[in-house]
Design a protein around this nucleic acid. Structure first.
Length: 490
RNA sequence: CGGGGUGUAGCGUAGCCCGGUAUCGCGCCACAUUUGGGAUGUGGAGGUCGUAGGUUCGAAUCCUGCCACCCCGACCA
């Protein structure tokens, strides 16, 4: 491993790529646009999955699994949906290979599928085709199902975790008897995502609605949480859609109500993906590497021994064994890095790169004094403390770190929400600090698109807690009732 | 899919213009000394120079085709 990584300020993209690689999170695979998530990166994803999965269950949802392949005819049933995804679909056309006689393996043209299969870019269509058989009466509703899966979107340009051709995610698909219930569900899941982002990822988010232009293909309303990265660019961290009766109509899913009336079912879908890994990395990390919030760190505490003799090593080992037992009882995950192939300084740097929240170093000096060196990753500070009551102290420290990482990110985000009242000011802020720009907008897609063309900034959302305020659109000067949040985004 | 670029050891590279069988650093292996912030020394292993063809006595180097990847656009969670 070479020393250090590129500085954030010097080249943010390169810093990100090097960090992802060197912290053993992921790498590009041999397959175009696809990513290999390495064991350490995957361990973080698993922590995220576990927390989210529990939250879904706590809100009444169950997991299920639907096919990877979607017949083209299903896909084309909802007009705006197919339009939204058509340009990025992987399509299966054949089911057999053959030897062409010269030893070369080729696609067997005789084995052409009658109907092409689309590798799911999202599962609304295959799921609604299935729900049709599940729903007859209001008694069958609601259906509250989530699926953990991979999806494929044939992106032109990819970036580890943020945009890859294949990615892992969860997608919830619910069916309801009434519009109100469906909207409530979509809002509830946005709350779940908000709680997860803020309490687990220590990632402050802005909750809002997408404009018509940015809305999910096939949705009537798209709710989202938007986060701010350290380079001043926004990142959509999760979405929850109110789908109305669009998919029910496309797949003819009707139910008989209590009153005996036949009506189409109301739907929602919601999802977060491995993109959250990108958000987690970019929101907190620094030039020394990853900074993980304790709640999502696969290893919360690493213990590094410093010794000269076997005898010292043994004594430290005994002390550490006791500490590990105590910490494990408290549910703290500990790694004792007793490799004798690396020196302490190397280990310090390596665990910092990997974002382990707390490090304990114990050497001969500590054995004599009954102390340890306690270092925290987020502030890069260290202190020598008594080994008496250490486990309690560490437990508290982990809580403090979780909180402190969140507060730091919150302050960063809040400092970078700027109100502007003219297009010149808008462009100036966008160029200098970036971040979210709160500005009046005339409500038209036309204006939104022109601003995007000229500045690359998009409307991230209309915040849910927005207050109404009369003003004039910064671009056209037309009247506006409220401000919206613009930003350059990933 | 348009514009530009790059392919040389596990990684990063020099050499290419001007043809003579490949440079340096990191990493890896062995041994020794080391161990409180990324150790040092000595020795060693590892390459059909992306690929297929052409020119030539001779190609990493010149020419042609192909492939892969990267960057910038358009697209996007």
């Amino acid at each position: 491993m070479s020393k250090g990584i590129t500085s954030r300020k010097e080249d943010y993209s390169q810093w990100y790529n090097e960090l992802v690689n060197k912290a053993d999170l992921a790498e590009h695979s041999a397959v175009r646009g696809c990513m290999v998530i390495k064991p350490y990166g995957y361990a973080i994803w698993e922590k995220m999955q576990a927390a989210l999965d529990q939250m879904f269950k706590d809100t009444g949802h169950s997991n299920a699994y639907f096919p990877l392949f979607i017949p083209k005819s299903f896909f084309s049933k909802e007009a705006s949906h197919v339009e939204g995804f058509a340009t990025e679909c992987a399509v299966v056309t054949h089911y057999r290979l053959k030897n062409d006689g010269t030893g070369k393996i080729v696609v067997d043209e005789d084995a052409k599928l009658e109907e092409e299969l689309i590798v799911r870019p999202t599962s609304e269509t295959i799921i609604w085709n299935t729900y049709k058989g599940w729903i007859q009466s209001y008694r069958d509703l609601p259906i509250l199902v989530n699926q953990w899966a991979n999806v494929v979107r044939w992106e032109m340009r990819t970036r580890l975790f943020l945009r890859t051709a294949e990615f892992l995610w969860q997608e919830g698909h619910t069916a309801h008897a009434t519009q109100e219930e469906a909207i409530k569900e979509a809002e509830q899941m946005l709350d779940v995502y908000t709680t997860f982002a803020e309490e687990w990822m220590a990632l402050p988010v802005i909750r809002g609605r997408k404009t018509e232009n940015e809305r999910f293909a096939g949705a009537l309303d798209t709710y989202c949480i938007e986060a701010l990265m350290q380079d001043g660019k926004a990142l959509q961290a999760g979405t929850s859609h109110f789908l109305g009766q669009n998919f029910a109509k496309a797949f003819d899913v009707k139910f008989t109500s209590k009153e005996g009336k036949l009506d189409y079912v109301w739907a929602t879908s919601w999802g977060v993906s491995t993109r959250l890994m990108g958000a987690l990395i970019m929101a907190h990390s620094d030039d020394a590497g990853l900074v993980l919030p304790p709640k999502l760190a696969p290893i919360q505490v690493v213990v590094v021994p410093i010794y000269k003799t076997d005898e010292e090593s043994k004594q430290i080992g005994e002390l550490v064994d006791k500490l590990i037992v105590e910490l494990k009882q408290k549910g703290v995950s500990v790694k004792y890095d007793d490799r004798d192939t690396q020196r302490p300084g190397f280990k310090f740097a390596e665990w910092e790169l990997k974002g382990v929240p707390v490090r304990i170093a114990i050497g001969a000096r500590d054995l004599q004094n009954g102390t340890v060196e306690l270092a925290r990753r987020d502030t890069q500070t260290k202190e020598t403390v008594s080994s008496e009551g250490l486990a309690d102290r560490i437990e508290q420290l982990l809580t403090d770190i979780q909180q402190s990482i969140f507060e730091k990110a919150l302050a960063f985000k809040n400092e970078r929400i700027t109100e502007v009242n003219s297009y010149d000011e808008f462009k100036k802020v966008l160029e200098s600090e970036g971040g979210f720009i709160s500005a009046h907008w005339d409500g038209t897609t036309e204006t939104e698109k022109r601003v995007k063309e000229e500045t690359k900034a998009t409307i991230r959302c209309i915040p849910l807690d927005n207050k109404l305020e009369d003003g004039t659109c910064i671009f056209t000067g037309k009247p506006s009732k409220q401000r919206v949040l613009f930003a350059k985004a990933y």
